[in-house]
Design a protein around this nucleic acid. Structure first.
Length: 303
DNA sequence: GCCCAGGAGATGT
DNA sequence: ACATCTCATGGG
């Protein structure tokens, strides 16, 4: 990987990052806006535009001192080839999922941003999560102008969510998740150790997260995987449940047991593989065996 | 109208 | 421990 800085931005030569797949289609983040073939968002207060280039991508603006942040966010230091080798012994569907999605990387998002996103994701579909996150950020997040893009909005701080209140969040379309967001924001302002989660052992970090309102085991695992660097966290939603039953462990009942099985089968990077499998199942890229009473229809996921 | 969506929380057994 | 309900909201 080679990086050069000019005109206030960074040019990155990197063969293995698919921006559309990683930032938009794979549903690990919901706030990236597509603008004329590029991708724009505010992350941790930094407005940026990512643009695919021949043999890599550009990042604007990006001062040299900001580069380590984005490098970490995009998980560019991980050897995804090693993940493929780790999974060589697994069932064919696991290797196929990895083969089918070159350039999918697992983001390291700010913990608070992942937490807000996945509280809003509960019993909701990807398209609506995207528009809901956008509405909350636009109404309550700080505005950042970006040349060639217009105004971008970051995630509102815990203090801002708390002062906005439940009713304002309902007005924005959060529904019954509004009080969850307010309660979690309050806990964070009162000292919940968000930044310490990445340094805790997985079971301890999970226990802390599920103590927050609106955070059950699935949401907690998403926050740990996408926002705390816990690559062994294994979120089980409806798609992962269907996928596991169809491809790996038929007749295993209950998401708790499916998660346990996934963690044992797939090992310390189970969460990374989970994301490949999740995307293949949800988009129909790899075929799910038809379950009782459910037709596999063609879902248009143009986004 | 019904069913579904990267579920969580409360209640009952 | 497990099953069942309800909770907003919008799209198919």
């Amino acid at each position: 990987m080679q990086v050069s800085f000019r005109d206030g931005g960074a040019q990155v030569a990197h063969a293995s990052l698919d921006l559309q797949l990683t930032l938009v289609d794979s549903a690990q983040a919901f706030h990236w806006r597509k603008v004329a073939g590029a991708y724009a968002a505010v992350v941790d207060g930094r407005a940026v535009r990512l643009c695919p280039q021949e043999e890599g991508f550009s990042l604007t603006p990006c001062a040299p001192e900001d580069w380590p942040f984005w490098r970490r966010y995009l998980d560019l230091d991980r050897d995804y080839g090693a993940l493929v080798e780790e999974c060589a012994h697994l069932a064919p569907m696991a290797r196929q999922a990895l083969d089918r999605l070159p350039g999918l990387r697992i983001l390291n998002q700010p913990t608070w941003e992942a937490l807000v996103s996945f509280i809003l994701s509960a019993n909701n579909n990807v398209g609506r999560i995207q528009s809901l996150v956008a509405a909350v950020c636009r109404a309550l997040g700080s505005a950042h102008p970006l040349e060639g893009v217009g105004m971008l909005h970051g995630f509102p701080s815990p203090e801002r969510l708390l002062s906005a209140g439940e009713e304002a969040l309902r007005q924005l379309g959060c529904g019954y998740r509004a009080p969850y967001l307010v309660g979690t924001a309050r806990a964070v302002t009162e000292g919940f150790p968000l930044e310490a989660l990445s340094g805790m052992a997985y079971p301890e970090a999970l226990k802390r997260l599920v103590s927050l309102p609106g955070v059950g085991e699935k949401v907690a695992d998403c926050v740990l995987l996408f926002g705390c660097g816990h690559a062994d966290a294994f979120p089980v939603d409806v798609w992962v449940e269907r996928m596991m039953l169809s491809w790996f462990t038929p007749e295993l009942k209950g998401r708790k047991r499916i998660k346990q099985q996934g963690r044992v089968l797939f090992g310390p990077h189970a969460g990374l593989l989970q994301q490949y499998l999740f995307h293949c199942a949800r988009t129909g890229l790899l075929p799910l065996e038809e379950a009782e009473g459910r037709q596999i229809e063609d879902r248009g996921l143009s986004v």
